[in-house]
Design a protein around this nucleic acid. Structure first.
Lengths: 251, 251
DNA sequence: CGTTAATTTGAAGTTTATCAATAACAGTGG
DNA sequence: CCACTGTTATTGATAAACTTCAAATTAACG
């Protein structure tokens, strides 16, 4: 029995656990019905397995309901770049939808539960409910912002700054997703290899730098959980100006 | 008189020079009318001036009609990351729209001509014409793909590979935008500093690496124009698999 | 022309990668 | 419960890539 349960999405979207949190925008009854009608099912993906294969034609869109995942791209010689991490509520598969073929893979970082939507139904869904189409644009634009940030991090920051930036941003997003518990810690399923691949660093250098930050007392990783110990110091290192994360649409 | 004229957008969207090329998806009469009604004017921005200020509340969306621009973010100590380059037909300002405050700046790389749309009118525009809303999602998702690629480049490739990747991708996009002339060359307004800022390299190292590629005969930059001399060799260096660029929606 | 911006080059210094190995840990079957 | 096995984390040593500093050359422009 895991300490991090991964509940299956309920049959009725109205009972969605995520919608009961502050992290997501409210919807009308009618919108909820549209979303429910659009959803074709649910799926469980085990940790380490593909949600979307890096090559091949995707046929589904997903909303991550529980667990963690990440988007990545691989070069032909095996080098892998993690583009971003996905948390509950994130919408998956849009880029592929508009490229008609997957341009990146999505892998489950933990066991994950997903809501499934048929790719072929997207246009119809948007046509019937422009507001939800607008929400999808919102999600797409905000996904791009996350990647923008990551590009700045990888392009301009040194190793310590990169790690500080990653930790602090994940903590913010985990907070919005309601994953942070009473003592300020949250599940942190990334291995150092994931961190390295996300930040464009070697595994060894990632380890040494992470260790340095730990010894400075900036953060703690124990039992698969991360706690930010000195938010101010980490934020300074990351050149991070806190702005409140806004609730996001949930499809 | 410049060798690269920057025509002003015509009064009627029906006369749009861009729509006469193969690079963009066709629209119906009705859609064209919606776009025309959405457009609030045109604007000229001189090379080096801001299209969207990095801080502050943006009030407009734009389509780049002629000229080049780039999106960027700056850290508080001045380090700058160029997120991507913008070519004619690219839509500008979506991310800011959904963040309600600019999260990045957009600067004209050359003199630029733009079509202007009121930010506040976007929802109404989408509501009236879901198909065009869908197109905007398309543009947003495809913008994210470009940034995805750049993140892979900066995170995983070495200096020579980064430069090869940048040159080859810009050449592809320039081709789609109809900017490549008979002898396979196109306007290339980037300074080495821009290249460095886009690739996360120092100016000096960018110069030395660029020079090395030139001496290998892979490309030529002369009189502000770039010609790819050995596409195959450049593509191999960039681990680039050519896939035809699809026509994009044009708002 | 004269002035500023952009490019080019050499030399020295730092960061990060690579190599090689060990230690800690998690899960499995006996 | 323990040995076994594969994954993950840690550490030291060396090499390579890249940055920084400083300065000269070339190009662009009013």
């Amino acid at each position: 029995m895991s300490i991090f349960p991964r509940p299956q999405p309920p049959a009725a979207c109205a009972d969605c656990r995520l919608r009961q949190t502050q992290g997501f925008q409210p919807v009308t009854e009618e919108e909820l019905a549209c979303i429910q009608a659009f959803r074709s099912g649910t799926r469980k993906v085990a940790a380490g397995r593909a949600v979307i294969a890096e090559l091949g034609d995707p046929v589904n869109l997903f909303t991550l309901y529980a667990g963690w995942a990440f988007r990545y791209k691989t070069l032909s010689d095996g080098r892998r770049q993690i583009l971003n991490f996905l948390l509950p509520g994130d919408f998956i598969g849009l880029q592929a939808e508009f490229a008609n073929t997957a341009t990146h893979g999505v892998e489950a970082l933990t066991d994950a539960q997903l809501c499934v939507f048929p790719q072929s139904g997207l246009w119809d869904f948007v046509r019937r409910n422009p507001k939800l189409g607008y929400d999808i644009t919102w999600l797409s634009a905000s996904g791009e912002q996350v990647v923008d940030e990551n590009l700045v991090t990888v392009g301009q920051r040194n190793a310590a700054e990169r790690i500080a930036t990653l930790l602090i941003r994940l903590a913010r997003r985990a907070e919005r997703a309601g994953l942070v518990d009473g003592d300020g810690a949250f599940e942190f399923p990334l291995t150092q290899q994931h961190i390295a691949d996300a930040l464009g660093l070697s595994l060894v250098h990632t380890n040494k730098t992470l260790r340095k930050l730990t010894q400075l007392g900036l953060h703690e990783i124990r039992d698969g959980r991360l706690r930010i110990v000195k938010p101010g110091a980490l934020a300074a290192l990351a050149d991070y100006a806190a702005r409140p994360l806004r609730p996001q649409p949930l499809i």
